[in-house]
Design a protein around this nucleic acid. Structure first.
Lengths: 142, 142
DNA sequence: TCTATTATAGAAAATAATTTTCTCTAAGAG
DNA sequence: CTCTTAGAGAAAATTATTTTCTATAATAGA
């Protein structure tokens, strides 16, 4: 469930002496439920639309905290920094370039890749393309 | 050779109505020869050290041009945007987290991966770790 | 439960990064 | 060689992000 994710975040934050307060939890819930690449500003706007009264600073702070505990990832797309919430398990991303929705895939096609003369500590694999919904929408139009 | 890369860049720029002028060529040469993740500021500093008199604006403009023609890639590392020059051929990156040197690998372990319900347009795979030189340096110290 | 301590909220200010503007220069087409 | 247009670079402007500051809220411990 989503709530167990939130507990996970809460624990991770506590281990670093940080608190998952209500404003941060609001940001977190919006961020988790969107599962898309977003700018801090966008998250802030969505909160405003939903009459959730939080500051942009809080959005930045929550994202930074999540980056620190490895539960968010940053992408530079067209010169714009966008973030997405990430599961704690090793996974890769399917990123829709139309709507920025992100799906995680947990089967890793490169887990056994070894490279001589380079000590691999981690890897990141992303597939960029068009998600099913956007494909359908495009058929309708063009 | 490196000069053929420069010609390639020149052609690509010309196709977009841009020119590879001398100041840009200076930036380009520094950028190509470093093959590491750099900030625009760092490239600018290196130029200064070498008594190459170019403006920071020119560095930004060259990097943006390269991003546009697909010959540079951006990474957000520890909240900092860093760029690296990229070959035109499909490849992946080995990124040293100590010195930021980047090596390209041209054998693609995921070229045949298909995902149902998602139209893959491109993918990006990066290995983060420690390069050979940095491993040696670390043995020496710790 | 109450209290003390410390992290956080959020507005405003500061800073950093990046882009734009502007005038002069240089590339390259014809 | 000349004309047209892109680029150079300094300075200004803009944008994104972080810091500061005071009030508040969360948590540990009595």
């Amino acid at each position: 469930m989503a709530s167990s994710i939130i507990e996970k975040v809460s624990e991770e934050l506590h281990e670093k002496g940080m608190r998952l307060t209500n404003p941060r939890k609001e940001v977190l819930e919006l961020f988790i439920s969107s599962r898309k690449l977003q700018t801090p500003q966008e998250i802030f706007e969505i909160a405003k639309d939903k009459k959730i009264d939080i500051g942009l600073t809080t959005v930045y702070r929550m994202i930074n905290a999540l980056l620190e505990i490895g539960l968010a990832r940053a992408y530079s797309i067209n010169g714009e920094l966008r973030y997405v919430f990430c599961s704690p398990e090793h996974h890769h991303h399917l990123i829709c370039l139309k709507c920025f929705k992100v799906k995680e895939i947990f089967n890793c096609p490169v887990k056994d890749v070894k490279i001589e003369g380079f000590k691999v500590l981690s890897h990141q694999l992303d597939f960029f393309g068009i998600c099913e919904e956007c494909q359908k929408k495009m058929e309708g139009n063009e």
